[in-house]
């Protein structure tokens, strides 16, 4: 507990993606909020297409219930996950205008629900996850509306992408060229992976990330001014509250040292998501670890 009281620190949250195997089967939206409240994890990431009933046109009744639950469980709406589904129609890519319309529809909904950061998932064209060729065009088109609705579009930088890469350089170039505060980055901590768990721990129908190169933690430092949210990705928590694959202590201490005070939203992406209660326990262990490192 060496971290000083009063210093700016990252904050804790949860991506409801963590509970994907439970949602609709063993847990409701309210159950997931109640879990967060128990853990003092106030920052919320939802996936629009998953967690908004009636998306993209939720009913007034649903919206009122949302407001009620946010208040009841003391939740801070942090990040709104959405997609530009470039291959929405078979055989062609969306035009910049269609992509723009898709973005703006989500800006309005995110704003209504109280979110200010968007995890904007772009369509890709190859195995290196290179974004669609027209991404600059529709992102620039959408910047004035992002400002109007007070949201920041953040592509997620996710393994196998490296922090020192053309993709990240291109995103940073757009930010610097336009001077925008409405486009940034979401860093998924999986980019810092140093170990893997044995393949035998994964079930037969589970997706295992292929081996790839990863970034050293210090590579995040120059990007921090553009990072509005982080995915605190994790794969396995041990019984003594250590994450087995990602150097959390180094990551969080780096964020603290550089006064980054955004939300780290837990994103469980390990085995047994479909085993009732398993992911729930993993997320709880993850928050024990993060609290300890943060000195909370």
């Amino acid at each position: 507990m060496t971290n000083q009281v009063g210093k700016t620190k990252p904050k804790r949250g949860v991506s409801l993606y963590s509970y994907a195997g439970e949602y609709g089967v063993t847990m409701s939206l309210e159950d997931m909020f109640a879990e967060m409240h128990d853990m003092g994890a106030r920052g919320l990431e939802i996936l629009a297409n998953s967690h908004i009933e009636g998306y993209p046109n939720p009913s007034e009744e649903w919206l009122e219930n949302w407001d009620r639950l946010i208040k009841k469980y003391d939740i801070v709406p942090v990040e709104y996950g959405h997609w530009v589904d470039s291959r929405l129609y078979q055989g062609r890519h969306l035009t910049p205008e269609e992509s723009y319309e898709m973005l703006v529809r989500d800006f309005k909904l995110a704003n209504r629900l109280g979110f200010t950061v968007l995890r904007t998932k772009l369509g890709v064209i190859d195995d290196e996850l290179t974004p669609v060729e027209n991404w600059r065009e529709f992102i620039k088109l959408a910047l004035p509306m992002a400002e109007k609705y007070n949201v920041r579009m953040c592509p997620e930088i996710h393994a196998p992408t490296l922090l020192k890469s053309k993709m990240v350089d291109d995103y940073v170039q757009l930010i610097e060229e336009t001077g925008t505060k409405h486009f940034g980055l979401n860093i998924d901590f999986g980019v810092f992976t140093t170990k893997t768990i044995p393949a035998s721990e994964w079930g037969p129908n589970e997706f295992i990330m292929p081996e790839s190169d990863h970034s050293p933690v210090e590579d995040i430092i120059p990007l921090l001014p553009y990072v509005y949210c982080c995915h605190a990705k994790f794969v396995k928590m041990s019984d003594d509250f250590e994450e087995m694959t990602i150097p959390y202590e180094t990551i969080i201490n780096t964020l603290i040292e550089h006064n980054w005070d955004g939300y780290m939203v837990s994103e469980y992406e390990g085995p047994k998501k479909d085993v009732p209660g398993y992911a729930v326990e993993q997320v709880r262990k993850h928050h024990v670890m993060m609290k300890r490192i943060l000195g909370e």
């Binding site: 997609w83 530009v84 589904d85 929405l88 998932k121 772009l122 890709v124 064209i125 190859d126 195995d127």
Partner: peptide, 11 residues
């Protein structure tokens, strides 16, 4: 189903 954020082969 298609999934635009994965490589096209995944569709």
């Amino acid at each position: 189903y298609s999934c635009s954020y994965f490589p096209p082969v995944v569709d």
